[in-house]
Each structure stands twice: as structure tokens, then as C-alpha cells.
């Protein structure tokens, strides 16, 4: 049994309470959501904290998927499992169910949250890639109020985000645009393992041509821009294998993988290419099959 160093803990009863506790207890305090990233680090004594502020009681306040006219709002405490099983997300953004099906295992998914995932900012973490692909924005609240940042602004690097000490990520907002769909693909060495490389793609069509497209990658170095060069290359084009190949090539160039236990840098680069093609292809197929939701307003009718 691996045991953490001594610490104290408290349960927050509201977002304000949590912010107040963080403020009062200082740098040695940390929020714990699902705990599936933080607790293993504490048990391995990679993180030694004096205070934990448990925000699981805020699930009522921050656990939701709300579909609005032009955006979907996801509360930071929404659990992986809720994302996996959400019919709203399945209709609008199938990329979520694709990704969630291959994140960790059911035990982790029952507790782990989207907020914890984004805030952990692990370089191999999957939901950052999903949110990047969907051009999400993050709502951060502190004593001074709320601010909204793009994924690019949110993600400052491995294990580093725009969330300052006495702040909390409360919500993720995803724009809904017509005639789009998305997909996610991950290569892992074994079920439940972190990604060797993953790619997400989202495509919006205008008749026979691509109106817009974005790609987000995981485990191949920092990239939360959606790879603008891919969007540029795809816009206004008719989907084709050659086009996917071009996009894959751009993805491979745009990333900066390193060699580690999970695979060589060359291989990961190859996967960035291969998985970009696959997810773009799948997104377009989904649009053509009418599988994915058009827009939130269409759905609400």
C-alpha cells in the first residue's frame, strides 16, 4: 500500500467557499475533484500538500451538460462517465463518447472530472485535445469574479494552466455550429493506458465542401491551437483521401513528440498523421450519414 504524507482536508460547500478556503490556506492547499490524478501523485509522494479542499459536494452545482442555442456548457465537475453517457453530447459532439470510451477504465471514469482533467494538464491527457478540437473556452472564477479563456490561453504547458492559485475552473463552453461532426482516435499500448498518441477532428460542411475543420492532438507536445494550417488547407475543399493525407502531413509536422516508454518520436509523428486522417474521414462520414447533430437549435425543435 502506498501512503501519502500527512495532510488535512475540508469539504467545500460552494464555489465561493472553495475559493475562500484556497485564499486563506495559501499555496499548500489544493482542490481535489475526482482525485484520480492528484491522489496517485500524493501516494507516490510526488505531490506533498498540507490541505486538500474536496469539491465533490459541488457536483450538484458544477456537474451538468447544458445545451443552449449556440453553445454547450459543461460544468467542471461533470464526471467522465457522465460525458460518456450524455445523449446531448452524443448527438452534437460524438468526439466525446469516442474519447471517453478510451480514457482510463470505468473505476476512474466514475470519479474523474473534466475540470480535473483540464487542470491536471497532463501532456497525454485526452480531454484537452477534445476541447481544443471543438474550440472550447474555459470559465475561471476567483474572488474577483469570472473570466473566460481560450484553450490556447488556458493550457500553459505540461501541468500548467491559466488557473491561478485561489481560482477554480467552473465551466467549459463549446460553440455549436451547423452541419458538423467530430471523431476521436487513440492508440494505446493496452486498454486503460495513456495515449501513445491521439487525435481529434471536427469538421463542418457547407454543401459538398468543408466549411471549417479543426484537429487536436494529445501526447505529442503542446498544441492547443487546433492546428490552423490544417483548417486553412481544408476550408473550401471537397473531402477526399488526398485532402486527409495533406492534413495528416501537416499534423505530423505541427507536433513535437519525444521518445519514451510508449513509443519513438518517429512513430508518434506517424500516428499524428494516421489518426488525423482517420478522424477527419470519420467526421465526414458521420456528417454524411446524418449521424451527428446539426446544431443545438435543430435538436431542440
Amino acid at each position: 500500500m502506498q501512503v501519502p504524507a500527512p495532510f488535512e482536508s475540508d469539504r467545500a460547500t460552494s464555489v465561493e467557499h472553495a475559493i475562500g478556503l484556497l485564499d486563506r490556506l495559501g499555496e499548500e492547499a489544493r482542490l481535489v475533484a475526482g482525485g484520480h490524478s492528484l491522489l496517485p501523485m500524493m501516494k507516490l509522494r510526488l505531490a506533498n500538500l498540507e490541505y486538500l479542499i474536496d469539491i465533490n459536494d459541488l457536483h450538484g452545482e458544477l456537474g451538468y451538460v447544458r445545451v443552449g442555442a449556440d453553445e454547450v456548457r459543461i460544468g467542471a465537475m461533470t464526471r467522465h462517465r457522465e460525458l460518456l453517457e450524455s445523449p446531448e453530447l452524443a448527438a452534437l459532439f460524438p468526439i466525446f463518447a469516442d474519447a471517453e470510451a478510451v480514457i482510463a477504465d470505468p473505476v476512474v471514469r466514475n470519479r474523474g472530472t473534466i475540470g480535473g482533467s483540464l487542470c491536471q494538464a497532463d501532456p497525454s491527457e485526452d480531454l484537452s485535445a477534445v476541447c481544443t478540437t471543438l474550440n472550447a473556452t474555459c470559465v475561471i472564477r476567483g474572488a474577483g469574479g469570472e473570466r473566460t479563456v481560450t484553450m490556447e490561453q488556458f493550457h500553459r504547458g505540461p501541468y500548467e494552466t491559466a488557473v491561478e492559485h485561489a481560482e477554480i475552473l467552473t465551466e467549459i463552453r463549446i460553440p455549436v455550429r451547423p452541419n458538423g461532426s467530430s471523431a476521436y482516435a487513440k492508440v494505446e499500448r493496452r486498454a486503460g493506458d495513456w495515449a501513445v498518441t491521439s487525435a481529434g477532428a471536427a469538421v463542418w460542411m457547407d454543401g459538398a465542401v468543408i466549411a471549417d475543420a479543426r484537429v487536436g492532438l494529445a501526447a505529442v507536445g503542446p498544441n492547443t491551437t487546433g492546428i490552423p494550417a490544417i483548417s486553412e488547407a481544408l476550408r473550401g475543399q471537397e473531402p477526399s483521401e488526398e485532402l486527409y493525407e495533406r492534413a495528416g502531413g501537416i499534423a505530423a509536422e505541427a507536433c513535437s513528440p519525444t521518445t519514451d516508454n510508449r513509443g519513438s518520436a518517429d512513430y508518434k509523428r506517424h500516428l499524428a498523421d494516421e489518426l488525423t486522417r482517420r478522424t477527419l474521414r470519420r467526421s465526414v462520414e458521420r456528417i454524411r450519414a446524418g449521424e451527428a447533430g446539426d446544431s443545438a437549435t435543430d435538436r431542440s425543435r
Binding site: V187, R189, V196, R262, G263, S264, Y267, K268
Partner: peptide
């Protein structure tokens, strides 16, 4: 024979 090694 991990995916990376098979790819190699």
C-alpha cells in the same frame, strides 16, 4: 511487440 516496436 508494442505498436511502436511493430511499426519500427
Amino acid at each position: 511487440l508494442t505498436p511502436s516496436r511493430v511499426w519500427d
